[in-house]
Design a protein around this nucleic acid. Structure first.
Length: 622
RNA sequence: GGGCCCGUAGCUCAGCCCGGAUAGAGCGGCGGCCUUCUAAGCCGUAGGUCGUGGGUUCAAAUCCCAUCGGGCCCGCCA
């Protein structure tokens, strides 16, 4: 039920009638206008005379859902009939309750959504936060609209980086009992340390072979950098790691382990699985804190490597398109660039205009990330959903294009078109890119803790008895909203002030607004849905905003933009707070009192569904 | 060098797809409002060559071209 449906339809018919009356071959579109009523249509491009337009408009009969039909220059404007609108809103809200906002048009199909998919060697950091929250809100939005959704997290438990973590953990496992921190935080440090040691070892051996002085200085500077990475890690085990691994050629060792791993060596599998599980335990905990739910945890190793899916399709590709395959020293390279050009795939698959060739097999016979990703994409597609949405940062634009091209080349043309790369821009630290390898990141837990503390100190002044329970929920609201209040297409420079913002345009601001509405209704749970014949301008405005909820949801789901919901809710909250200050509800006389209660209830209902979509916890006290 | 994305108030951003009526919010400034439904709030006020140049059009923040600035990518990394 969409309260704006009837008025929109009425206006559309009027425009149609007017267009016909003017002898136009087509009907102008119905548009929204902020200052000249509510709906508008423009006739400029038809070169009609304003007087003629006015004449035709005068012939229009009585209005039912609209009000004040008027002509202004070549604009045809109409306002909403507030009383009718109020009736429609109240009816929809009382019948649908927190389902209000749903319309059949926002039911668009079934979706497999893959998001977050962080490497299992370090904790989730503020970059993954964007992915997780964007993905999760998208899932919630789709679910709110009754679409079938399955949520997947791809565990990238293959490749050299996992070997590094495993090597490190194996070296310091005896110290494991001493761990007091979350396991993912510990492994993250181990991973960074092993990386640093590997780099230092590599540079050392390069230095011993270098005679060029300038190059020597470069190497030393680089080594210093990695040493300082090591020094920044405040863990007892760093010394032990250096002692154990300081003389080894870790690059070679990791490559060797990786090869054994892909071939299914039991010992290596166990050691990798051990480290991966520890990290996942921590990552799951963080996601749970944020209210993010995952249905399936997909192990890359099992789905793509040990099942032989990856090598199987590579063989198929080589057989099918030998003219696009090059063999370079045993490595297999697919000329995705030439293939895309020859088959004119740029528009069909929505590809960038530049595509590099892609290596699918190393000369040692092991797979690469993209190799496995194609196999995984295929696996996802075979689960039988209308669309597969992969929430992955824009960094991977080319890699994701490769996946689509290869699927197409393999004959999975529909899959290639229906697997979408849902790209979002990066989260940067001020002045630097985040890098788990360099231990340069802020973990999600950290910002949640900090937000929680800040919120606790705010609550202590007002409601000390509930501070503990509320602080964390406020923190989640703040962090989730902070991510959603920026378009996914814009890079974010991480700033504590934004995440910890608890004033307007923030999660806590929305939560606070809800608390206000809730506490009014709590004091007077019974009322009738009455529509007065006089309304305050603020009441009208608020009513219109509430009526726009279903169209907002629709737009958000059609364009897959949960951030539209965040923007809408902020606007709704601003209107409501303004109204709250101006118009007393409980102290008003009947029937105004009942009307206001019904209005407040509508706002509260919309906030509840909106909170569900954005994953903002609902609070009744703050 | 090539590709993708982004340049709108001091700051963060919406609007651009689908061109039209005085370009919208919030933060921060400044000035106000708590014996009255929770002040994490509200009211008022100042603040803008919509990066720049050209083109299309009766009409451009919006479309096209060029140019400048920022981010990311162009690996036998993931």
């Amino acid at each position: 039920m969409d309260p704006l449906e009837h008025p929109r339809e009425e206006f559309r018919k009027i425009v149609e009638q007017v267009a016909h009356g003017l002898g136009l071959g087509e009907t102008p579109e119905v548009e929204k206008t902020a200052r000249f009523g509510y709906f508008s249509a423009k006739f400029h491009k038809y070169r009609v005379h304003p007087a003629k337009l006015r004449e035709v408009v005068e012939a229009v009969g009585d209005l039912r859902y609209l009000d004040k039909l008027s002509v202004d220059g070549l604009y045809l404007n109409a306002d909403l009939n507030a009383e009718r609108l109020a009736e429609a809103v109240f009816k929809a809200v009382s019948q649908m309750s927190t389902r209000y906002g749903y319309t059949d048009q926002c039911r668009v199909g079934s979706f497999l959504v893959e998001h977050t998919s962080a490497n299992p060697v370090h904790p989730l950091h503020i970059g993954h936060g964007r992915n997780a929250i964007l993905g999760d809100s998208l899932v919630r939005l789709l679910k709110f609209c009754n679409n079938k959704v399955e949520v997947h997290f791809y565990i990238d438990d293959c490749g050299v980086q996992v070997m590094y973590a495993a090597i490190g953990l194996d070296a310091v496992r005896e110290e494991a009992a001493m761990w007091r921190s979350k396991p993912d935080l510990v492994i993250g440090d181990i991973y960074t340390a092993v990386n640093a040691i590997a780099e230092i070892n590599k540079l050392k051996s390069e230095l011993s072979k270098t005679v060029d002085e300038a190059r020597q200085r470069e190497i030393i500077a680089e080594m210093d950098e990695w040493v300082s990475v090591l020094n920044r890690i405040e863990r007892d085990f760093v010394n032990k790691l250096v002692e154990t691994l300081g003389r080894e050629n870790l690059v070679e060792k990791a490559a060797e382990l990786n090869k054994r791993y892909e071939m299914g060596d039991v010992e290596v599998r166990e050691s990798v699985r051990r480290v991966v599980e520890l990290v996942l335990r921590g990552q799951r905990e963080t996601l749970a804190r944020l209210g993010v739910e995952i249905d399936f945890w997909d192990y890359e190793s099992e789905i793509t490597v040990w099942s032989s899916e990856a090598s199987r399709y590579v063989r198929k590709l080589v057989d099918k398109w030998p003219q696009y395959v090059e063999h370079k020293g045993g490595a297999v390279v697919f000329r995705a660039d030439k293939f895309a050009e020859d088959f004119k795939l740029t528009d069909v698959l929505n590809l960038p205009k530049f595509i590099p060739p892609v290596t699918l097999m190393r000369s040692d016979g092991t797979t690469l990330y993209v190799t496995r990703d194609v196999a995984y994409a295929l696996w996802q597609w075979r689960r039988g959903f209308d669309r597969v949405v992969r929430v992955i940062s824009t960094e991977q634009t080319h890699e994701q294009a490769h996946v689509r091209i290869i699927l197409y080349a393999l004959g999975y043309e529909e899959a290639a078109r229906k697997i979408v790369h849902y790209a979002y821009e990066m989260v940067k630290l001020p002045g630097a890119k985040m890098s788990a390898r360099r231990g340069q990141y802020i973990s999600l837990d950290e910002i949640l803790d900090e937000a929680s503390e800040r919120s606790a100190s705010l609550i202590k002044e007002k409601n000390p008895e509930v501070a503990g329970v509320i602080a964390e929920k406020v923190a989640v609201g703040a962090v989730r909203y902070a991510y959603l209040s920026t378009s996914p297409k814009k890079p974010i420079e991480f700033k504590w002030d934004t995440v910890l913002n608890m004033r307007q345009n923030s999660g806590p601001f929305l939560q606070y607004t809800y608390v206000r509405a809730y506490s009014i209704l709590e004091k007077s749970p019974k009322y009738d849905f009455v529509v007065p014949n006089q309304m305050l301008p603020e009441e009208r405005e608020l009513l219109v905003k509430v009526a726009e909820w279903p169209s907002t949801v629709r737009e958000a789901v059609l364009s897959l933009r949960p951030d539209y919901v965040a923007e809408y809710l902020d606007g709704l909250a601003l209107l409501f707070n303004s109204y709250y200050e101006k118009a007393p509800v409980l102290k008003a006389d009947e029937p105004t009192r009942s009307f206001r209660l019904a209005l407040v209830n509508s706002v509260k209902t919309v906030l509840e569904s909106g909170f569900y979509i954005l994953g903002i916890p609902i609070l009744t006290k703050m």
